[in-house]
């Protein structure tokens, strides 16, 4: 324990950790962040190159353009030396660089899904699989109803068996907490299995 003199401002920053909250338009990302954050969600904007492939035209047509994307975020102070950041990011397109930036150093991700509009989240699911970031699919129970059962969601999104699919309520603090704990469980497994080969 360091006993800083009380006259000095707190100069030692917390270790930051982050979890990414991805998902399509209006699925409840900001609501999720706001439900558990210590501070009201803040917004930051970033310029980025979006790459989109038309679903109607799944051939070669790839469009690239630069666009501004708003990201919402909040934080939870775990203790004076550890702070969890939650970054909510739009997920209906591939925002290459921003997603690299977001997932670099992230403990994991939660893909928020509205069961009645599943196709919005394909790019997020695919991206996290490709970069090997532990993630869960969290189905937001709008008005307490899921819209589809979890097995159907898993099938429809072609979610791999080792990826959890859970139901949650984005407006409910403890429900968001429990969903984040599922992400952290995956993160813990990754950390432990990364470490154990060195000890073997």
């Amino acid at each position: 324990m360091d006993s800083a003199r009380s006259t000095e401002p707190v100069r030692r920053p917390p270790v930051p950790v982050k979890i990414v909250i991805a998902g399509g338009f209006g699925v409840g990302k900001t609501t999720t962040v706001g439900a558990i954050s210590d501070i009201p969600p803040l917004t930051t904007e970033a310029e980025m190159t979006a790459e989109s492939v038309g679903i109607d035209n799944p051939g070669q047509r790839t469009e690239k353009r630069t666009t501004t994307v708003a990201m919402d975020f909040g934080s939870v102070s775990i203790d004076h030396s550890l702070k969890l950041y939650l970054f909510g990011t739009p997920g209906q397109e591939r925002f290459g660089y921003m997603w690299d930036d977001l997932s670099r150093g992230a403990l994991g991700a939660m893909v928020v899904v509205d069961a009645s509009r599943l196709d919005d989240c394909y790019p997020a699911v695919d991206y996290f699989e490709q970069v090997g970031l532990p993630f869960i699919v969290a189905v937001n129970a709008f008005d307490g109803r899921l819209g589809a059962d979890l097995d159907t969601v898993r099938w429809a999104l072609a979610i791999q068996d080792h990826t959890p699919v859970v139901a949650f309520d984005a407006r409910n603090r403890t429900s968001v907490r429990d969903a984040l704990l599922v992400v952290l469980d995956l993160a813990l497994h990754r950390a432990v299995s990364h470490r154990s080969p060195l000890r073997a």
Partner: peptide, 16 residues
Amino acid sequence: PVFDPDTILRVINGLR
């Protein structure tokens, strides 16, 4: 922190 189980456990306990 991504590969540090102790830090992740602290986050888990903090959220709990």
